Amino acid sequence: MNKELLKKSQSLIALFVLCLAISLLSDKFLTANNLWNVLRQISVNVCISVGMTLVVLTAGIDLSVGSVLAFTSAVCAGLLKNGIALESFDLFIGFTTLGGILAALLIGLLIGVFNGWVITRFSLPPFVVTLAMLTVARGATMLYTQGMPISNLGTSFEYIGSGWLIGIPVPVWISLIVVLIVVFISKKTTFGRYIYAIGGNEKAAFLSGININSIKLAVYGIAGLMAAVGGVLVSSRLNSAQPNAGTSYELDSIAAVVIGGTSLSGGIGSVTGTVIGATIIGVLNNGLVLLNVSPFWQQVVKGLVILLAVIIDQKSKKK
């Protein structure tokens, strides 16, 4: 019983040890401003990672989330800034803040559903399909923005990424709401049980009458939607959409999922574990910056952390 409890708590213990180590090495870590800054940064990865968790629980993967984030961010900013001009009809369509955000979320959802459709329709490996979408979405972002940032998007939009509500940053509230919704879906609904069943044994799930393709379409759609939420948070915080936004975010997302205890083979894991994993990644990034570690070494460290988490996952499966 103690061993089982220790296994479930290992990511939480790792977070505590990491925070303790960084606080001893830097007196800036435990300041209020820094901790709020860490939570703001973590919010984006949390939103992306909870969507990734559902995909990984079905034994899939989505490498396109960083590029989808960039594309939806650019589209949202472009609609807010320039609207849609239909010159042949002498018509101009302007977008409110809500309209631009909803358009971005819809596009993210559709891209995710398209990923799921290609994977299920042609029985292709998720790795290959989402890697292709990574390239397509990144290219589409460059085409849409012409490689230039889209800035000055308005104070109401900027408030979403930079504002405060009841003493807590708005992005933290948004990520909390997202986490609560996805936890409820994964733990309290039939849909959530089907996700775990598919990841645990897809053949058995199929023989039990579960519509495998529909579930996969839904989880990839949710992953795309969550990437779009991250895109809105990133662009609103900067009050600008950058064409290179979201670069390597898919790695941070996968790292958060694996460190949080979700098995890459599917069927095992939780959204709450992923939140802890995302917090570990965020604290690690912040700590390396505070300690003036080179950005190149930061990538090396994150890569080693991911490798260690996968090794621990595989050893746990064997046991």
Rank of each mutant, 00 (worst) to 15 (best):
K188G: 11
S88K: 11
T97N: 04
I259Q: 05
A21C: 11
L264V: 11
Q314L: 14
N292C: 08
E202S: 09
L25I: 13
A241K: 03
F122E: 05
R193Q: 14
A278I: 02
V275S: 01
G116C: 05
G287E: 03
T135M: 15
T262F: 11
G282V: 02
I276P: 01
L18C: 06
F114E: 06
V118W: 07
M52C: 08
S175H: 00
F95P: 05
I111R: 05
G231K: 03
V17N: 04
Q314G: 12
G287A: 10
L288S: 07
I222V: 10
V44G: 00
S175C: 03
S49C: 06
A59I: 07
G246T: 12
S73H: 10
S88G: 12
F114K: 09
K7F: 10
Y144T: 06
L30R: 13
W173L: 10
S67R: 02
G230V: 00
L80Y: 06
F92A: 02
D90W: 11
L290E: 07
A104L: 09
L91C: 10
S235E: 02
V50H: 01
K187D: 10
S11N: 06
N213E: 14
T130L: 05
G209Q: 07
L20H: 01
I13Q: 00
V170M: 04
L238H: 05
G199H: 07
S316N: 13
V258H: 00
V234E: 11
L307E: 06
S186Q: 15
G112A: 12
F114D: 02
N292V: 14
A223T: 02
Q298D: 02
Q146F: 08
I312N: 13
Q146V: 12
L20G: 14
T120F: 03
L12M: 05
Y159G: 11
I119H: 04
C76Y: 09
A140G: 15
G231A: 07
K216Y: 04
G139Q: 13
V289H: 06
P125C: 05
I13N: 09
L153Y: 08
E4N: 14
A103C: 12
G94M: 09
I306P: 12
L35T: 08
K8M: 12
G78V: 12
S43I: 01
P149T: 11
S253C: 12
T189R: 03
A256W: 04
A132V: 00
V289T: 11
T72E: 06
S9W: 13
A255M: 03
T58Q: 08
L6G: 14
I174H: 00
P243Q: 07
K187Q: 15
G221T: 04
L109P: 03
R237M: 07
L80P: 08
V300N: 00
A77F: 12
T31P: 00
K8C: 06
L180N: 03
S263W: 10
S64F: 07
F89W: 09
N211C: 05
S88N: 13
M142R: 15
E4T: 15
P171Y: 01
I268R: 14
V118S: 04
V301K: 12
